[in-house]
Protein backbone atom coordinates (compact mmCIF):
# COMPACT_ATOMS: atom_id res chain seq x y z
CA UNK A 1 0.00 0.00 0.00
CA UNK A 2 2.52 2.50 1.17
CA UNK A 3 4.74 1.82 -1.84
CA UNK A 4 1.93 2.57 -4.28
CA UNK A 5 1.06 5.78 -2.49
CA UNK A 6 4.55 7.14 -2.46
CA UNK A 7 4.76 8.62 -5.93
CA UNK A 8 1.62 10.78 -5.94
CA UNK A 9 2.27 11.50 -2.27
CA UNK A 10 5.40 13.39 -3.20
CA UNK A 11 3.22 15.84 -5.09
CA UNK A 12 0.71 16.26 -2.28
CA UNK A 13 2.67 18.85 -0.24
CA UNK A 14 3.27 20.95 -3.34
CA UNK A 15 -0.40 20.76 -4.28
CA UNK A 16 -1.28 21.94 -0.77
CA UNK A 17 1.29 24.72 -0.94
CA UNK A 18 0.50 26.02 -4.40
CA UNK A 19 -2.57 28.27 -3.88
CA UNK A 20 -1.03 30.09 -0.91
CA UNK A 21 2.41 30.08 -2.52
CA UNK A 22 1.05 31.63 -5.70
CA UNK A 23 -0.77 34.28 -3.70
CA UNK A 24 2.44 35.16 -1.86
CA UNK A 25 4.47 35.22 -5.06
CA UNK A 26 2.00 37.35 -6.96
CA UNK A 27 1.12 39.80 -4.21
CA UNK A 28 4.32 39.92 -2.20
CA UNK A 29 7.32 39.10 -4.41
CA UNK A 30 6.09 40.80 -7.58
CA UNK A 31 5.09 44.00 -5.73
CA UNK A 32 8.49 44.18 -4.01
CA UNK A 33 10.16 43.83 -7.42
CA UNK A 34 7.89 46.59 -8.73
CA UNK A 35 9.04 48.69 -5.81
CA UNK A 36 12.71 48.01 -6.64
CA UNK A 37 12.10 48.99 -10.23
CA UNK A 38 10.53 52.29 -9.35
CA UNK A 39 13.19 53.06 -6.74
CA UNK A 40 15.78 52.78 -9.52
CA UNK A 41 13.87 55.11 -11.83
CA UNK A 42 14.46 58.78 -12.51
CA UNK A 43 11.54 61.08 -11.80
CA UNK A 44 10.29 62.91 -14.91
CA UNK A 45 8.16 65.98 -14.50
CA UNK A 46 4.47 65.36 -15.22
CA UNK A 47 5.22 61.86 -16.49
CA UNK A 48 5.82 58.40 -15.21
CA UNK A 49 9.31 57.88 -13.81
CA UNK A 50 11.80 56.33 -16.23
CA UNK A 51 13.66 53.17 -15.28
CA UNK A 52 17.39 53.90 -15.38
CA UNK A 53 19.36 52.01 -12.68
CA UNK A 54 19.37 55.32 -10.85
CA UNK A 55 20.73 54.64 -7.37
CA UNK A 56 20.63 58.35 -6.57
CA UNK A 57 17.19 58.04 -4.97
CA UNK A 58 18.67 55.97 -2.18
CA UNK A 59 21.36 58.50 -1.34
CA UNK A 60 18.92 61.41 -1.43
CA UNK A 61 16.44 59.50 0.71
CA UNK A 62 19.05 58.75 3.36
CA UNK A 63 20.48 62.26 3.47
CA UNK A 64 17.07 63.98 3.47
CA UNK A 65 15.40 61.73 6.01
CA UNK A 66 18.26 60.42 8.14
CA UNK A 67 16.72 62.05 11.22
CA UNK A 68 13.38 60.29 10.70
CA UNK A 69 15.12 56.96 10.18
CA UNK A 70 17.16 57.44 13.33
CA UNK A 71 14.07 58.41 15.30
CA UNK A 72 12.06 55.43 14.03
CA UNK A 73 14.71 52.93 15.09
CA UNK A 74 15.30 54.72 18.39
CA UNK A 75 11.59 54.81 19.29
CA UNK A 76 11.08 51.24 18.13
CA UNK A 77 14.10 50.11 20.17
CA UNK A 78 12.87 51.88 23.29
CA UNK A 79 9.37 50.49 22.83
CA UNK A 80 10.83 46.99 22.47
CA UNK A 81 12.82 47.32 25.71
CA UNK A 82 9.84 48.74 27.59
CA UNK A 83 7.49 46.07 26.25
CA UNK A 84 9.95 43.44 27.43
CA UNK A 85 10.29 45.08 30.86
CA UNK A 86 6.55 45.08 31.53
CA UNK A 87 5.52 42.11 29.36
CA UNK A 88 7.92 39.58 30.84
CA UNK A 89 6.62 39.84 34.45
CA UNK A 90 3.06 39.41 33.20
CA UNK A 91 3.91 36.39 31.05
CA UNK A 92 5.89 34.89 33.93
CA UNK A 93 3.16 35.49 36.48
CA UNK A 94 0.50 33.87 34.27
CA UNK A 95 2.72 30.92 33.33
CA UNK A 96 3.96 30.26 36.87
CA UNK A 97 0.94 31.11 39.00
CA UNK A 98 -1.98 31.13 36.53
CA UNK A 99 -3.10 27.63 37.41
CA UNK A 100 -6.37 26.78 35.73
CA UNK A 101 -6.98 30.43 34.81
CA UNK A 102 -3.93 30.45 32.52
CA UNK A 103 -5.80 30.21 29.22
CA UNK A 104 -8.31 32.83 30.21
CA UNK A 105 -5.67 35.25 31.51
CA UNK A 106 -3.54 34.98 28.41
CA UNK A 107 -6.70 35.33 26.31
CA UNK A 108 -7.30 38.65 28.08
CA UNK A 109 -4.01 39.91 26.69
CA UNK A 110 -5.35 39.48 23.16
CA UNK A 111 -8.76 41.06 23.71
CA UNK A 112 -7.68 44.70 23.35
CA UNK A 113 -6.57 43.69 19.84
CA UNK A 114 -10.16 43.34 18.79
CA UNK A 115 -10.76 47.04 18.83
CA UNK A 116 -9.19 49.14 16.19
CA UNK A 117 -5.58 50.16 16.69
CA UNK A 118 -6.68 53.62 15.63
CA UNK A 119 -9.47 53.91 18.19
CA UNK A 120 -7.18 52.63 20.95
CA UNK A 121 -4.65 55.31 20.06
CA UNK A 122 -7.37 57.96 20.06
CA UNK A 123 -8.46 56.66 23.44
CA UNK A 124 -4.97 57.42 24.74
CA UNK A 125 -5.16 60.97 23.36
CA UNK A 126 -8.28 61.40 25.48
CA UNK A 127 -6.99 59.61 28.58
CA UNK A 128 -3.67 61.46 28.51
CA UNK A 129 -4.95 64.67 26.90
CA UNK A 130 -4.46 68.23 28.20
CA UNK A 131 -7.62 68.23 30.29
CA UNK A 132 -7.67 64.65 31.54
CA UNK A 133 -7.38 63.86 35.22
CA UNK A 134 -4.33 61.70 34.60
CA UNK A 135 -2.51 64.73 33.21
CA UNK A 136 -3.68 66.80 36.19
CA UNK A 137 -2.24 64.27 38.61
CA UNK A 138 1.01 64.08 36.63
CA UNK A 139 1.25 67.88 36.64
CA UNK A 140 0.90 67.90 40.39
CA UNK A 141 4.01 65.75 40.59
CA UNK A 142 6.06 66.85 37.59
CA UNK A 143 5.19 70.53 37.30
CA UNK A 144 2.70 72.58 35.33
CA UNK A 145 4.26 72.35 31.91
CA UNK A 146 4.08 68.57 31.76
CA UNK A 147 2.23 66.89 28.90
CA UNK A 148 2.06 63.26 27.88
CA UNK A 149 1.24 63.93 24.26
CA UNK A 150 3.23 65.88 21.71
CA UNK A 151 6.47 64.53 23.13
CA UNK A 152 8.66 61.62 22.20
CA UNK A 153 7.69 59.74 25.37
CA UNK A 154 4.05 59.90 24.27
CA UNK A 155 4.97 58.20 21.02
CA UNK A 156 7.16 55.58 22.70
CA UNK A 157 4.39 54.89 25.23
CA UNK A 158 1.85 54.46 22.44
CA UNK A 159 4.12 52.12 20.48
CA UNK A 160 4.80 50.08 23.62
CA UNK A 161 1.09 49.81 24.27
CA UNK A 162 0.06 48.85 20.78
CA UNK A 163 2.63 46.09 20.30
CA UNK A 164 2.84 44.78 23.87
CA UNK A 165 0.77 41.63 23.20
CA UNK A 166 3.25 40.63 20.48
CA UNK A 167 5.90 40.58 23.21
CA UNK A 168 3.81 38.82 25.84
CA UNK A 169 2.46 35.92 23.74
CA UNK A 170 5.76 34.37 22.54
CA UNK A 171 7.35 34.81 25.98
CA UNK A 172 4.34 33.11 27.53
CA UNK A 173 4.53 30.23 25.06
CA UNK A 174 8.21 29.73 25.93
CA UNK A 175 7.63 29.98 29.69
CA UNK A 176 4.62 27.71 29.64
CA UNK A 177 6.74 24.78 28.46
CA UNK A 178 9.09 25.16 31.42
CA UNK A 179 8.74 22.89 34.39
CA UNK A 180 8.80 25.36 37.26
CA UNK A 181 9.98 22.65 39.64
CA UNK A 182 13.37 23.53 38.18
CA UNK A 183 13.43 26.51 40.55
CA UNK A 184 12.89 24.05 43.38
CA UNK A 185 15.87 22.03 42.15
CA UNK A 186 17.92 25.21 41.95
CA UNK A 187 16.87 26.05 45.51
CA UNK A 188 17.91 22.61 46.69
CA UNK A 189 21.30 23.35 45.21
CA UNK A 190 21.42 26.50 47.34
CA UNK A 191 20.64 28.99 44.60
CA UNK A 192 18.69 32.01 45.81
CA UNK A 193 15.30 32.41 44.07
CA UNK A 194 16.71 35.34 42.10
CA UNK A 195 19.76 33.39 40.96
CA UNK A 196 17.50 30.43 40.21
CA UNK A 197 15.44 32.60 37.92
CA UNK A 198 18.34 34.22 36.07
CA UNK A 199 20.42 31.06 35.74
CA UNK A 200 17.66 28.54 35.00
CA UNK A 201 14.29 29.96 33.94
CA UNK A 202 15.36 33.04 32.01
CA UNK A 203 17.76 31.26 29.61
CA UNK A 204 15.01 28.75 28.81
CA UNK A 205 12.61 31.54 27.93
CA UNK A 206 15.03 33.33 25.61
CA UNK A 207 13.50 32.04 22.33
CA UNK A 208 10.25 33.74 23.34
CA UNK A 209 12.08 36.94 24.25
CA UNK A 210 13.84 37.04 20.89
CA UNK A 211 10.67 36.33 18.92
CA UNK A 212 8.73 38.91 20.93
CA UNK A 213 11.41 41.54 20.41
CA UNK A 214 11.27 41.10 16.65
CA UNK A 215 7.48 41.14 16.61
CA UNK A 216 7.46 44.44 18.49
CA UNK A 217 10.42 46.12 16.83
CA UNK A 218 9.39 45.53 13.21
CA UNK A 219 5.88 47.00 13.25
CA UNK A 220 6.98 49.75 15.64
CA UNK A 221 9.75 50.91 13.29
CA UNK A 222 7.32 51.25 10.39
CA UNK A 223 4.46 52.74 12.37
CA UNK A 224 3.31 56.33 12.02
CA UNK A 225 -0.10 56.32 13.68
CA UNK A 226 1.28 56.77 17.19
CA UNK A 227 3.62 59.53 16.06
CA UNK A 228 0.71 61.24 14.37
CA UNK A 229 -1.75 61.17 17.28
CA UNK A 230 0.52 61.15 20.31
CA UNK A 231 3.47 63.12 18.94
CA UNK A 232 4.20 66.40 17.24
CA UNK A 233 5.95 67.40 13.99
CA UNK A 234 9.22 66.93 15.91
CA UNK A 235 8.50 63.25 16.43
CA UNK A 236 7.74 62.29 12.81
CA UNK A 237 8.77 58.74 12.00
CA UNK A 238 9.86 57.31 8.67
CA UNK A 239 6.45 55.72 8.08
CA UNK A 240 4.76 59.11 7.80
CA UNK A 241 7.39 60.26 5.31
CA UNK A 242 6.82 57.19 3.14
CA UNK A 243 3.05 57.59 3.26
CA UNK A 244 3.26 61.28 2.52
CA UNK A 245 5.64 60.82 -0.43
CA UNK A 246 3.48 58.06 -1.89
CA UNK A 247 -0.02 59.40 -1.36
CA UNK A 248 0.38 63.17 -1.17
CA UNK A 249 3.59 64.20 -2.97
CA UNK A 250 3.23 61.35 -5.49
CA UNK A 251 7.04 61.14 -5.57
CA UNK A 252 7.15 57.40 -6.18
CA UNK A 253 10.91 56.93 -6.74
CA UNK A 254 11.88 58.56 -3.42
CA UNK A 255 9.05 56.85 -1.57
CA UNK A 256 10.04 53.49 -3.00
CA UNK A 257 13.70 54.07 -2.11
CA UNK A 258 12.71 54.99 1.46
CA UNK A 259 10.55 51.86 1.81
CA UNK A 260 13.31 49.63 0.50
CA UNK A 261 15.88 51.11 2.87
CA UNK A 262 13.51 50.48 5.76
CA UNK A 263 12.83 46.95 4.55
CA UNK A 264 16.54 46.34 3.93
CA UNK A 265 17.64 47.42 7.39
CA UNK A 266 14.93 45.34 9.04
CA UNK A 267 15.55 42.27 6.88
CA UNK A 268 19.28 42.35 7.67
CA UNK A 269 18.46 42.75 11.35
CA UNK A 270 16.01 39.83 11.22
CA UNK A 271 18.46 37.58 9.37
CA UNK A 272 21.28 38.29 11.79
CA UNK A 273 18.90 37.86 14.68
CA UNK A 274 17.48 34.56 13.46
CA UNK A 275 20.95 33.23 12.59
CA UNK A 276 21.96 33.94 16.17
CA UNK A 277 18.80 32.90 17.96
CA UNK A 278 16.59 30.93 15.55
CA UNK A 279 13.04 31.64 14.37
CA UNK A 280 11.39 28.85 16.34
CA UNK A 281 9.34 31.11 18.55
CA UNK A 282 8.21 33.50 15.79
CA UNK A 283 5.08 31.62 14.86
CA UNK A 284 3.74 31.30 18.35
Amino acid sequence: MAGEDRKPARLVPWALLSPGGLWLALFFLVPVLALVKIALSTPVRFQDPEFSWDFGNFGTALSDYGAQFGRSFLYAGLATVLAFAIGYPLAYCVAAYGGRWKDLLIGLVVIPFFTSFLIRTMAWTSILGERSFVTKIARGVLGDGFTFTGRSWGVVGGLTYNFLPFMILPIYVALEKIDFRLTEAAGDLYATPVAGFWRVIFPLSLPGVFAGSLLVFIPAAGDFINARFLGSPDTTMIGSVVQDQFLVQLDYPSAAALSLILMGIITVAVLVYSKLFGTEGLAA
Binding site: L24, F28, V32, L35, L214, I218, P219, A221, G222, D223, F224, G239, V242, Q243, S259, L260, L262, M263, I266, T267, V270, L282
Partner: peptide
Protein backbone atom coordinates in the same frame (compact mmCIF):
# COMPACT_ATOMS: atom_id res chain seq x y z
CA UNK B 1 5.56 39.20 4.76
CA UNK B 2 5.34 39.29 8.55
CA UNK B 3 8.83 40.70 8.97
CA UNK B 4 8.19 43.35 6.34
CA UNK B 5 6.82 46.56 7.79
CA UNK B 6 3.19 47.10 6.86
CA UNK B 7 4.00 50.34 5.17
CA UNK B 8 6.32 48.54 2.73
Amino acid sequence: PLTTPEIV
